[in-house]
Design a binder for these strands. Structure first.
Length: 271
DNA sequence: ACTGAGCGC
């Protein structure tokens, strides 16, 4: 099996410099600082896929105790994680804030491979928000992709509860720098029922494909937004809004066991 | 880049 070399160490110096500037900017905001070991993050080059060792008791060398008086969600969702990015990678990055509590990468139960996303807990809602504002959309160390962060829907240990159906719109014409959070907040500023937003990206490069989706909890807001927000500026470009194609069929189970979920791909390929 | 697959055992 031949393996591609995604990035070369020779051009990583500038990445670290950029990242360093971001951290400096962060530390100016953050009142709390603590001593941090300067452990380099292992580069992805040469990484070979293998299941991580069996789950051991994860110690959190940089973690601090959560602030019990803080109300609101203290956890962030993080996406677009590469297979080699484990808890230690996340801890190394966010431990520098001095407000990091713990990290968890979600793994497949059978294979123990990363599912590509995880959760990061901070000492307080405010600390999590600072991280969201500071790191989101900036470059992840040792990669050419950007952090994909958002509020976790619920805190650790909480169960996802059914909060009703989603009413989704398609948003096209997005500038390359628009993040999920930016898109979400653009709409949330106007519509209270906005549940979330997702910018579609190329999974391997992490680059935006220039379109995304916004989910509403309220159908009338969804419909209103389609006319009211069409042509509105988000970052540097005007959004073009359309109805979202159905992501999931309205009827329950669509596929029989054993049939691949992307079965329809074959039909498209043939024609 | 114009219709995604992203919420924790």
């Amino acid at each position: 099996m031949m393996q591609q070399q995604p990035s070369q160490p020779s051009d990583q110096t500038s990445h670290y410099q950029q990242q360093h500037q971001q951290w400096m900017a962060y530390q100016q905001q953050s009142s709390q600082q603590q001593q941090q070991p300067q452990t380099p993050v292992p580069p992805p080059a040469g990484w070979t896929p293998q299941p991580v060792p069996p789950p051991t008791q994860q110690t959190q060398p940089y973690g601090v105790a959560p602030d019990a008086s803080s109300d609101g969600i203290r956890s962030l969702w993080i996406g677009d994680l590469q297979p080699w990015m484990g808890e230690s990678y996340i801890a190394r990055i966010f431990g520098r804030t001095g407000e990091f509590v713990s990290a968890k990468v979600i793994r497949n139960k059978q294979t123990n491979f990363s599912e590509g996303y995880g959760f990061i807990e901070f000492v307080s809602h405010a600390a999590a928000e600072r991280v969201l504002q500071t790191f989101n959309g900036t470059q992840m160390p040792s990669t050419e992709q950007n952090f994909r962060l958002n509020w976790a829907t619920y805190g650790a240990g909480e169960r996802r509860r059914d909060d009703g159906p989603d009413f989704t719109i398609f948003v096209g014409g997005l500038a390359a720098d628009v993040t999920d959070y930016m898109l979400q907040e653009t709409f949330r500023a106007v519509y209270s029922s906005v549940k979330g937003a997702k910018v579609v990206t190329d999974r391997t490069t992490g680059r935006s494909k220039g379109y995304g989706f916004v989910r509403f909890g309220n159908e009338s807001e969804q419909l209103r937004s389609m006319t009211e927000m069409n042509g509105v500026l988000c970052s540097t470009r005007r959004m073009r809004i359309g109805p979202a194609a159905t992501k999931k069929p309205a009827t329950g189970q669509q596929y029989q066991k054993g049939m691949p979920p992307n079965f329809s791909i074959f039909e498209k390929t043939i024609s």
